[in-house]
């Protein structure tokens, strides 16, 4: 398994605020990786560190085994679509493609033209007059026509209506399926159902730390909801790691990580969906956060 992006204890601070803390992870080649977490969790920071727009405060990040944006050859291998899929409002669609052709050594003009035709975009239209969905598709076209081996997308569908969102994800999956040695994609999103569709690997970030990281099939196979009469988490068998616990007077509900479900007449242990799995990790990080004001 070749690592495309590798971080070791990667940390980014802005003054006293920590945006990303002690992040160690690997993005394997040929995967579509989902990055999920609440606002301010460090998703954008991680993506911007990976494409070289930011430099780490401490720790290290490597892309294709070298520092990000080391030289123009390295830059040509990485595509980045920033949050809100920015384009130049006063330039036309055709201007954007000309700009792409001038700035990128491996520019695939045929691909760019074909995509613009498929999308039904008017080349003479100014980008500022495009709809949100069309602008996102233009930004994606610019990123994929440079034929990147690694494509980073920061919340590309956040502002899109459901129809435009589906169209965008269709285009993205077409790019992944078409790329010769399958390209690696990292995209952040709040929409777990979208990520479950298009991703095979998931990274859960909360409070600037990595909470879970792995192949989605493995994550689903090792997370369970366990419902039982009220008991403390530390009375559960060894080998079960409690991700999140909730109690009423009589009942305890745990989300646990374990190699396999364990049969026991005193509890019900069922598989858990991806959305609940992600929420359990996010809630567990909220549990461990120090209270900002004294509890009343």
């Amino acid at each position: 398994m070749t690592a495309i992006v590798e971080t070791r204890a990667l940390t980014k601070r802005y003054g006293r605020r920590t945006a990303l803390a002690d992040c160690t992870l690997t993005v394997p080649a040929g995967r579509v990786v989902g990055l999920v977490g609440p606002n301010g969790a460090g998703k954008s920071t991680l993506l911007q560190l990976a494409c070289g727009l930011l430099t780490p405060t401490s720790g290290a990040v490597e892309v294709f085994g070298r520092p990000p944006a080391a030289d123009s050859a390295q830059l040509a291998r990485v595509g980045f679509v920033a949050q809100d899929t920015p384009t130049y409002a006063t330039l036309t669609v055709a201007d954007h493609l000309r700009l792409g052709a001038r700035l990128n050594p491996h520019w695939d003009a045929a691909l760019a033209d074909r995509r613009i035709r498929q999308l039904g975009l008017d080349p003479t239209q100014r980008a500022g007059r495009l709809s949100g969905g069309q602008r996102a598709q233009l930004a994606l076209t610019l990123a994929v026509a440079k034929r990147p081996e690694l494509l980073l997308l920061d919340e590309p569908v956040a502002a899109l209506d459901p129809l435009a969102r589906r169209a965008f994800l269709q285009s993205l999956m077409e790019f992944v399926a078409e790329s010769e040695s399958q390209a690696t994609v990292v995209l952040s999103s709040h929409l777990v159902s979208d990520l479950e569709r298009v991703c095979d690997h998931l990274i859960v970030l909360a409070d600037s730390r990595v909470r879970a990281d792995g192949e989605i099939d493995d994550l689903l196979a090792t997370h369970f909801r366990l419902t039982t009469a009220r008991r403390d988490a530390d009375t559960l068998p060894a080998g079960m790691r409690v991700v999140h616990a909730e109690h009423t007077e009589r009942q305890s509900t745990f989300v646990v990580r374990a190699d396999a479900a364990v049969d026991d007449p005193s509890w019900v242990m069922d598989p858990i969906g991806l959305e609940d799995l992600v929420l359990a990790h996010l809630e567990s990080s909220a549990d461990s956060r120090p209270a900002l004001e004294p509890q009343r």
């Binding site: 995967r31 269709q170 993205l172 078409e178 399958q182």
Partner: peptide
């Protein structure tokens, strides 16, 4: 490739 693009799912 066609399934991935049509259904918007991962080719894998």
């Amino acid at each position: 490739k066609d399934v991935a693009a049509k259904v918007a799912i991962n080719p894998n």
